[in-house]
Design a protein around this nucleic acid. Sequence first.
DNA 1: TAGAGATTTAGAATATTATCTAAATATCTA
DNA 2: TAGATATTTAGATAATATTCTAAATCTCTA
Lengths: 94, 94
Amino acid sequence: MNDAFKALADPTRRQILRLLRDRSMSAGEVADQFNISKPSISHHLNILKQAGLVLDERQGQSIMYSLHTTVVEDVIGWMFHILGKEGKEHDDEQ
Amino acid sequence: MNDAFKALADPTRRQILRLLRDRSMSAGEVADQFNISKPSISHHLNILKQAGLVLDERQGQSIMYSLHTTVVEDVIGWMFHILGKEGKEHDDEQ
DNA sequence: TAGAGATTTAGAATATTATCTAAATATCTA
DNA sequence: TAGATATTTAGATAATATTCTAAATCTCTA
């Protein structure tokens, strides 16, 4: 989950997640939304993928990226754990 | 909220929040939980404070740190927004 | 199968972050 | 008020992160 928190620390990556929330997009479509080079966006997408926050699937020439919500739910669980007094047995990497 | 996400990206700072979840602690008490120098912990506490995730209050010689949950709730709100399809009008920097 | 389009990989420059030691500041108490 | 305790500030160093351009890879189609 450390990778997820690190991935979420960058505003560009959070914006990518917001875009993918509405619909899946190809890497190029994502890149078109930013004033950042395609290789940089590709790097951000890879970080999100490593963190388990997005899935990628090749469709012909394009690679489609979509939101993967499982880890998002894990992060929410961690945040709720911080809020509540109960449930001290929450797992976390150091 | 960008500051909060950045603050949460560091595992030491997340562990500090977990410690403060159970009870408020002085800076020294927090530092005693880690193999990290006191100035470094002080730096982490300051980042958490700037992000609005903790509050500090001097009590005599000590400075007590406590969890401040408002921004945690904001982050949870952002995360839920990513999960759900509805509520596209969520505020976010960037 | 050659070329075009989409994406990633490689390598480098710059910026940010985490950490340390040493010194400064603030508070209490004898 | 002098010394002890608690914490922060300053300044430096090493590790990470973000971004770029150029080149490589993969896929489709004419």
